[in-house]
């Protein structure tokens, strides 16, 4: 690996990091605009034209607010909580294939930071680590509401991880690989032979389970029980102020972005798009692929928001019932059906 390759990788990492941050920033704006649209309001429109400077104003406010660490809180863990939350949500993007290879002046550029051969499991591991930030922060605040929020987050994540893992197993049975790049390559184009190539058409039930679990894992409404403000004041971030609160809110939006990217890659063809084989310039296909992937991700982010402002929050026992009594049996049934289908029809 020469110096140029290392520089290219470094550049790619920095670009992806900046993109995740900018998308997370503008997701806060988009969320308020979508909410306003769904509730027939105007939404933020004062900072800049159509309010597009609103995230900057919010960010500035977050930085300048007073930093409060409660007297009886564990100061180190109180700061470690949000730091861990944002760190874990940022490392998930490392294995996503953003596009096909670009060739510029003889250099082949992989639009993926690391092609780990257990990429799917890596994502899964990052997801399972995500809950520590919330748990540690909630516990270190030394506040009963925070603690309840943290405990809810833990049990919710553990419960939905099982269904999510089982739905991924069914997907892996059809793809036969754990590498996200191979999974994306298998879904090339849109139509092959007599059926769609995208995995969502061979695993519709698996995708449904996966997206429900993604809502639960990112603590998004209707599963935002850890920060349920009608019961727990602010949930795990009740005691947080200034940028530490900002990190928690930010990590939720980055998680949305990452899970959108994962869903697009696993089930919706990643960077592939219909009629891509009719374009003969490989670089053009690669660039269009990146654009298409981001369009899919934005659709998923919009979907997250759409659901948040449409469906009321679950009650806690309903959440557990849905996870253990509906999703897990369904995903096991999905594995069995997939197995039968592979044995007899392939």
């Amino acid at each position: 690996m020469g110096l140029t390759d290392i520089l290219i990788k470094l550049g790619l990492i920095v670009i992806i990091f900046l993109i995740s941050l900018v998308i997370a920033m503008y997701s806060t704006y988009a969320e308020r605009k979508v909410a306003a649209f769904l509730q027939d309001r105007v939404g933020p429109d004062r900072a800049g034209p159509w309010g597009i400077l609103q995230p900057l104003a919010d960010g500035g406010k977050m930085f300048l607010k007073e930093e409060i660490i409660p007297t009886n809180a564990n100061a180190f863990l109180f700061i470690a909580g949000p730091s861990l939350a944002i760190l874990v949500s940022c490392i998930g993007t490392a294995v996503i294939p953003w596009g096909q290879q670009l060739v510029i002046g003889g250099h082949v550029i992989d639009l993926q930071v690391a092609d780990v051969n257990v990429g799917v499991l890596y994502i899964f591991g990052v997801v399972s680590l995500g809950v520590y930030g919330i748990m540690i922060g909630g516990w270190a605040s030394n506040n009963k509401y925070s603690l309840l929020g943290a405990i809810r987050a833990a049990s919710q994540n553990i419960s939905y991880e099982i269904a999510m893992g089982l739905s991924i197993i069914a997907l892996l049975m059809t793809t036969g690989t754990l590498s996200l790049r191979h999974i994306a390559e298998q879904q090339t184009g849109f139509w092959h032979g007599h059926w769609f190539t995208w995995n969502v058409f061979s695993q519709p039930l698996g995708f449904l389970i996966f997206i429900i679990c993604a809502f639960a894992e990112t603590n998004r409404s209707p599963f935002d029980l850890p920060e349920c403000e009608t019961e727990l004041v602010g949930g795990y971030h009740t005691e947080y102020s200034s940028m530490k609160l900002g990190f928690y809110l930010f990590s939720e939006y980055i998680n949305m972005f990452v899970s959108g990217a994962v869903m697009a890659t696993l089930y919706f063809g990643g960077y592939n798009f219909p009629l891509m084989h009719h374009i003969h310039s490989p670089n053009l296909v690669a660039i269009l692929g990146v654009v298409v992937l981001f369009a899919k991700i934005f659709f998923f982010i919009f979907f997250f928001m759409w659901v948040r402002w449409t469906i009321p929050r679950f009650r806690y026992d309903q959440l557990m019932d849905l996870g253990w009594k509906v999703l897990i049996p369904l995903s096991i049934a999905n594995i069995v059906i997939t197995g039968v289908w592979i044995t007899y029809f392939k």
Partner: peptide, 28 residues
């Protein structure tokens, strides 16, 4: 690599979360 990532998911991501969960519940 497989054992590594499974250790990561199962032990760090699930079992120890449950440990922490139980401790937070009983030892306030």
């Amino acid at each position: 690599q497989f054992v590594a990532i499974v250790n990561f998911i199962v032990y760090m991501g699930a079992i120890l979360v449950l440990f922490l969960y139980t401790l937070m519940l009983i030892n306030l």
